[in-house]
Structure formats: structure tokens, C-alpha cells
Nucleic acid binder design. Structure first.
Lengths: 243, 243
DNA sequence: AAACGTATGTGTATAAAATACACTTAGCAA
DNA sequence: TTGCTAAGTGTATTTTATACACATACGTTT
């Protein structure tokens, strides 16, 4: 279980609560042992170093399991951050020297993002001093994690325009309004309800169930599921080369 | 100039010769010092290890400069290959033990691809035992470089559908037929000439010059240039979330 | 000098996809 | 029973994609 001291793996864990796109973050605190003064109080994604003999993808799965308890989750490598100054901010150096003196100054981090149904993660939150934050209202972040999250969001926005990955953020059964909110929030755009539904109706992989929402104080919505199998069988290629 | 022994940078260098999309590769040869027998004869991309104190992007620029002599070239990080078995094939181990005994078994490589006007590269080819190969007819490759090139091509195909990067593969001045061939070859599709030209006509960043092809045995084509400035000022966003 | 070969350049009709837009309905709560 | 809320639905218009054939300019050959 020896760690590779100059390679880490970070995982931007995205969740969706029908209103916001959120990121799961862990608090980082450091108190001066003499004065008791709080010297660092911020959040990080708390990745891990890769282990000797471990594939990068496995390291990412390990990080995700560790923070959410979840396995077999959508996980995508999107970028590797390798600038020499990424850990050199004063407070980060203080943190590393205090807590991880064996870690080098130049650590490259292979970054993944994952999409989880956040209702499945809740139990772990309190246990680990870990909290969801809307990507639009991030707290103060350590290292270069703000940049990593920003870049992750850009890759997610691109990917969700082309691939049916939004469903990973929703419960297995969902309504079209939930799905539409998801796209609106992630892409930061407004969509027309009727046109959206027309578009979804063409997607054979979004399958209506004989089931309705329950316990809502309005007309109950129909419930849908996503089928990756159907998607793989019916997907089309698109050409664009942007005008 | 100390190297980082477990991190390398590979660069898939793409070029275009109006017929094929090519990759620049360097021969790798190993002869048995006793028998004189040729033990290894194949090609690799010949990346380099990152250097201590060097940003990853700078390492990639260095690799590109080293192989092509070119600077300020389109360069895009697309994936980091980190499987533990990527250098473990028998002949690769033989190569490493003979030539680079200080290199570890588990090296992760951050892969970039670059797009170059291959007419600018020629002078360097003979000097460095380096050759262009069509991506559709690759020679035997060392390490996991065949996989890396295949993945690079997938990323390139995606990117070129959305961003005006094809121009990087053409000379500054080009004809619409050249441009069309480029798209057809990279995307492996057939395009209708009239519809293609209609589409390009909408792109304000493809600018006709008062200049025609010379010395061709047919009606000379009009010459165009690409303007990134104009592109940045006029680009539109697209939405899709694939049907 | 005429004829030939070759790749360039061009327009229209049709189909498909994207967009804009307003009223009725089902359930729960008051 | 009334009111509140979000669900559900169709049509007309604009934009974009697709399919398709002949004349032109240049160099080469005869």
C-alpha cells in the first residue's frame, strides 16, 4: 500500500437536488497547536495519491468509494493538472508540511468527475465532515481545486450535450420536469417545456412507465426510466464542424 | 534537468497530405550486441519524461519542438494513460532495461495531440529517423502507443466536429477542396461538395483571398485563409443532448 | 490551334429539425 | 367548492440539412 508520492487522483463528485448542481467537498481545518488559533479552514475534494501497482482508474474508483460509499458509478477522466505551482500557495504548503511531510511539492493530479444520485450519498455526509455545495456558490477552496471544479464543469457541459449522462444524476425513476431542470441547471439555459418534451419523445432510451408521481399537490407527472441498452442500439452520429 | 522517472508526456503528431491523416513516428531498433540479431524493430511516438520543475504543458511543447522543430503549435492534452501494465510487454521491458534502466515499470503518460502543417516538418524527418504513417496503416508500434493513437484520433474526431481546428493541419492558404478532403479523411465520411461549400460560406472565419491556385491543369481554385480572431468574435453555441 | 481531361464552381426543390407560443387537467389543500 | 400548482399537449413558422447536374477555366495533348 505504498503511495506514489508525486501522482494523485482527484474526483469532482457532482450531485443534483432538482434545483442546483452540487459538488461534494470535505472540510480542511488546521489549528495552531500552541495558540489554538484556526489557521486553515476551507474545503477540498480530498483526492488520494495513487498507490504503487494500482491503475489510475482504480485509484479514482477508490476515492469515490471512500467519499460516497458508492461503486459502479459514472466516472470520467477529464484532465490532468500538472503545473509546478499548483500546491505552492502559502496555506497549502503549511497544510502539507504539517500533515503530509512526505508529499512532494510537485504533484500532478489526474482529475475525474463523477455523477451520482445524491440521495444515495447522504448517509456518508456527516460521518466524513463532507458537504454538498452548489457549484455556483463554492466555499473557499484549497490547492487549485476551484480551477479543477471549474474545468470539470466545462467538460461536463460539453459531454452532456452529446451523451446521455444526465440520467446518472437522477434517481432511477424520474419525471420529465426533473430532467429538464437538470439540463437547464447544468447548461445554464432556459428550455421550452413543449419543445423539450418533443425532443425527449424522440429518444427511445427514455422510457415511460405505467406509473405516476404520488403525494404531490398538483397533477402528478408520469415517471420515466433511462435505458442505456436502448440508447446503444439506437444512437445516431452527428456532424457539425461549427459554423 | 533531472527527469521525473514515473511521469512521461507523449505527443501524437498529426499531419495531413491531402489524402491521408498521418502520424509522425520514430523508429526503435535494438540489436543483440553478441549475435548482431535485430531484436526490436518497431516505431514509437518517442515522448519524454517530464522534468523536475517543469509544467506538463511545457514538457509537451518540448517533445513537439524536439520532433518537429516547430513552436506555437496546436497542442491539446486529451488523456492520461496510467494502467500498470502499459510497459510490461516483453519487448518493451527488454528495451527499457537495455536503454533506460533508471525508468520504473509503472510510468503514467500524459498524452497530447498536435496538429501540424506537415510541409513545415519535412526537414526534420530524415535527421531523426522519423517518418509519417497514415493512421489507417500504422506500422508495428511499441508500448501502448497504438492504443494512444487510436484514442487520440477519437478525441480529434470529436473536437473537429465542434471547433475549427482542422485549419491547423493545412497550409495558411488553402482551397475548399483541401478543406473538404480534410474533413472527409478525418471523420471517415463522404460530404456533398455543394452543401459543404454552402456551410463554409456561412463561416465568417473562412475568408476568401483575391488569389487563385496556380499551375494546376484544371480550373484554378480560389484560395482561403482562416482567421481565429473572426471565429472568436462570431462563434455560436450549440445545443443537442443527442436524440 | 483545336480538342481533351480534370477539378472547380454554382442553385433549387424537398425534407427534417428547431423555435415560438397558451390553454386545459389532475391532484391536494384550504 | 374553490384555489393553487405543476403537468400535459399541437400548430404554424423559420431555419437547417439533404439531394442532385451542368458549365467553366486551365494545362496538356494532338
Amino acid at each position: 500500500m505504498e503511495i506514489i508520492s508525486n501522482i494523485s487522483v482527484d474526483c469532482v463528485i457532482f450531485g443534483f437536488d432538482n434545483t442546483c448542481l452540487n459538488v461534494l467537498l470535505t472540510k480542511r481545518e488546521l489549528t495552531d497547536p500552541l495558540t489554538g488559533e484556526l489557521m486553515i479552514e476551507d474545503y477540498t475534494m480530498q483526492g488520494h495519491h495513487a498507490l504503487v501497482g494500482e491503475n489510475l482508474d482504480d485509484a479514482a474508483k477508490r476515492v469515490l468509494k471512500d467519499k460516497t460509499g458508492l461503486e459502479d458509478i459514472f466516472l470520467k477522466q477529464f484532465y490532468t493538472f500538472g503545473d509546478t505551482d499548483r500546491l505552492l500557495k502559502e496555506k497549502d504548503q503549511l497544510w502539507l508540511k504539517t500533515k503530509f511531510p512526505m508529499v512532494r511539492n510537485h504533484v500532478i493530479t489526474v482529475a475525474y468527475y463523477s455523477l451520482v444520485d445524491s440521495s444515495k450519498v447522504k448517509p456518508y455526509q456527516q460521518y466524513q465532515n463532507t458537504k454538498w455545495f452548489p457549484v455556483k456558490m463554492l466555499p473557499e477552496l484549497g490547492f487549485d481545486h476551484e480551477k479543477i471544479i471549474r474545468v470539470a464543469l466545462e467538460y461536463l457541459q460539453e459531454e452532456i450535450r452529446k451523451e446521455p449522462i444526465g440520467f446518472e444524476l437522477l434517481p432511477e425513476k424520474f419525471t420529465l420536469t426533473q430532467l429538464q431542470n437538470l439540463y437547464e441547471v447544468i447548461l445554464d439555459i432556459k428550455l421550452d417545456r413543449r419543445n423539450f418534451r418533443k425532443k425527449v419523445a424522440q429518444m427511445k432510451h427514455v422510457i415511460p412507465l405505467n406509473e405516476k408521481q404520488k403525494g404531490v399537490a398538483h397533477k402528478p407527472a408520469q415517471v420515466f426510466i433511462f435505458s442505456r441498452d436502448v440508447y446503444n442500439r439506437t444512437k445516431k452520429e452527428r456532424l457539425d464542424f461549427s459554423v
